[in-house]
């Protein structure tokens, strides 16, 4: 059943609030920031998004996940943070161009791949795309977030480790968490690719049945 606009907005609101609140409480744990403040800031961010979209100040294809967190941290930072050093989060950055550059490279690569007659052109195959979409929607967390932040938002492992609560507030160093994110990403991607291949094989789109790789890659 198709979602209403209200359901879509609420889904985003609920999807990101836990992560947002965790990040804020962790980032400003030595300030007077309370959960009620976090909730207010979070709602203010959404209201600002609406105004900025309507005024054309921000594009529709913005990476909202990062945008919401960035704006929220910025709003909270003005009020609660002791200014000692500048985080990269504070510096304005334009990731939309970076994202489209990467997307363009992938698109170019997939088009320019050499192929023989008996090889299926899966990129144009609608059924293949539907199967892929289904597998993506069944990707659990934190895999879904790690994969998206890596390949869509083009974030580094260290940046990702600061965004995902499982890694950002476990008391370990950024380096250690970055390594953990990297290791987790390989596992997530292997699992996703395996599932995609299996779905394509079962649908008869590819001929080779995938084999599940063990952790050591064999």
């Amino acid at each position: 059943m198709e979602e209403t606009y209200e359901e879509i907005v609420r889904k985003w609101y609920l999807k990101l609030q836990g992560n947002f609140a965790s990040l804020m409480m962790e980032r400003y744990r030595n300030s007077s920031l309370q959960l009620a403040d976090v909730e207010n800031i979070y709602q203010d961010v959404f209201i600002a998004i609406r105004e900025n979209l309507r005024n054309g100040k921000v594009k529709e294809n913005t990476n909202w996940e990062s945008y919401i967190i960035r704006i929220g941290l910025n709003l909270a930072g003005k009020k609660y943070r002791q200014i000692k050093d500048v985080d990269s989060i504070d510096e304005p950055s334009d990731d939309s161009e970076k994202i489209s550059n990467k997307a363009q490279r992938i698109s170019n690569l997939i088009s320019s791949l050499p192929s023989e007659e008996d090889e299926t052109d899966i990129k144009s195959n609608l059924e293949a795309q539907l199967l892929l979409g289904d597998e993506l929607s069944h990707t659990p967390e934190p895999c879904a977030s790690i994969i998206r932040l890596t390949y869509y938002a083009d974030m580094t492992d260290a940046e990702i480790s600061r965004e995902i609560p499982a890694y950002s507030n476990n008391g370990k160093s950024v380096e250690s968490n970055a390594k953990a994110v990297k290791a987790r990403r390989w596992l997530c991607m292997r699992d996703l690719i395996y599932r995609v291949k299996m779905a394509l094989f079962v649908a008869g789109i590819i001929d080779e049945k995938p084999t599940k790789q063990k952790r050591n890659g064999r």
Binding site: A103, I106, S107, K123, Q129, R148, Y152, I193, L200, I206
Partner: peptide, 20 residues
Amino acid sequence: FREEFRIYLFTLRGIIMEAE
């Protein structure tokens, strides 16, 4: 190797398109 890379790219493109 080519087939594997094709599926990998196809998956990445799907991730990006879904996110967009």
